[in-house]
Structure formats: structure tokens, C-alpha cells
């Protein structure tokens, strides 16, 4: 027996199952990062000195732009599927993936720079929370890239057999990807600008 509402939304909730699932998952992610932001605040209040503009702001601004761009390519890839344009989807999804790679490379430059100047997590609570927050966010980026890469490559076969379900999947993957972008939107000022 088939499980209902895997493709079509249930009328009263307006959701198909996976969309309800990803939103709930994101709710839990909000609490995860919420706890880390709480830690940030308490550590900052307790600190004698908190660095200002000590991190590489231009590089991080570039990275913000990269991530925002990847968000629009992601939503465009979904819109392309809505227009039934699979080729366009592949282009946009490929771009999203590459922008993810780009983000990680820039982040990698930052990390290696920190390590080479001896700025390791155990040097101060600021560096500790910086590495924890960005590291955890980086893991989320990697997770999203695995999903996006799968839907760009092997997972896209589903377009031929179940186009609606595939479109749903891209929407769900998109919701996750935008959330990762959203987290960065808050991480960026909190860690780099304030």
C-alpha cells in the first residue's frame, strides 16, 4: 500500500510529507544554532576583551556574496524544473554545487591562514566559538553539497520517471540550502563585524 501525500500536498496542511519533514528538521536546526548563539552571548559577556574586525572581513564579505548567489541559483534550478526545462536545471544546479565548492575553498584559505599564524581554537574563547560555529556551518554546507551533487548527477534520473516527485525533492533540498545560507547571514555579522 502506498503512503499517501508523498507527491501531492495534503489539502488541510498544504504540504507534501517531505516538505513537512524538512521544515520540522529546520526547526530543530534553529534550536541547535540558537544554543550556539546563546553560548556566544554568554561567553562574550564573560570575556574581558572581545576582538573587533580581527578576522578577514573582505574575504568573508566575498563568501557571503558567494553563498547568496548559490541561493538564487538553487531557487532558479527549482524554477527551471517548474518550467519543465531540465537542461536549465542541470546548469543552475551545477552552478549551485560549484558555488558551494567556492565557499569552502575561501573558508579553507581563512582557516589555513589562522592556523599558520597560530590562531587555533584553544587560544581564546572568541576563536573557540568562531571555529565551532563556522566549522559546524561548514559541515552543513558539505552535507548540502552532497545532496545537491546527488540530485545533479545520479539522482536526476528520477526526472524521467517521476518528474513531480523529483521537483518536490529539489524544492526540499532547496529549503535546506537556503537555511544554510540563512545561518550564514547571521554568523557573518556576529563573528566578523561585531
Amino acid at each position: 500500500m502506498e503512503i499517501p501525500y508523498t507527491i501531492t500536498p495534503r489539502p488541510d496542511t498544504g504540504l507534501f510529507n517531505a516538505k513537512a519533514g524538512i521544515w520540522l528538521f529546520l526547526a530543530s536546526e534553529v534550536m541547535l544554532f540558537g544554543a550556539l548563539f546563546t553560548s556566544y552571548i554568554l561567553l562574550r559577556i564573560g570575556a574581558d576583551h572581545w576582538p573587533h574586525h580581527e578576522l578577514d572581513v573582505p574575504l568573508a564579505t566575498l563568501n557571503t556574496a558567494v553563498l547568496i548567489t548559490s541561493s538564487i541559483t538553487m531557487v532558479m534550478s527549482w524554477a527551471s524544473l517548474m518550467e519543465k526545462n531540465f537542461k536549465k536545471y542541470r546548469v543552475y544546479m551545477g552552478l549551485t554545487f560549484l558555488l558551494g565548492v567556492c565557499f569552502l575553498i575561501i573558508k579553507g584559505f581563512e582557516y589555513t591562514h589562522h592556523f599558520s599564524t597560530g590562531e587555533t581554537p584553544n587560544k581564546s574563547t572568541f576563536l573557540a566559538i568562531y571555529f565551532t560555529l563556522t566549522g559546524l556551518h561548514g559541515l552543513h554546507v558539505i552535507g548540502g553539497m552532497i545532496v545537491n551533487g546527488y540530485f545533479w548527477g545520479p539522482g536526476s534520473k528520477m526526472w524521467k520517471t517521476q518528474p513531480e516527485r523529483f521537483t518536490n525533492r529539489i524544492e526540499v533540498a532547496g529549503l535546506y540550502w537556503h537555511f544554510v545560507d540563512l545561518v550564514w547571514i547571521f554568523l557573518f555579522p556576529v563573528l566578523y563585524l561585531l
Binding site: P121, T125, T132
Partner: peptide, 17 residues
């Protein structure tokens, strides 16, 4: 989970959360 990650950092990366 967040607290667990922070405590792991304390134990493995030498931080002082």
C-alpha cells in the same frame, strides 16, 4: 547536541567553553 559539540571541543581541541 550543541552542548555536546562544545564539550567535545573542550576535550579534544583544548577550548575552554
Amino acid at each position: 547536541e550543541a552542548a555536546g559539540v562544545l564539550q567535545l571541543m573542550d576535550r579534544l581541541a583544548g577550548t575552554s567553553f
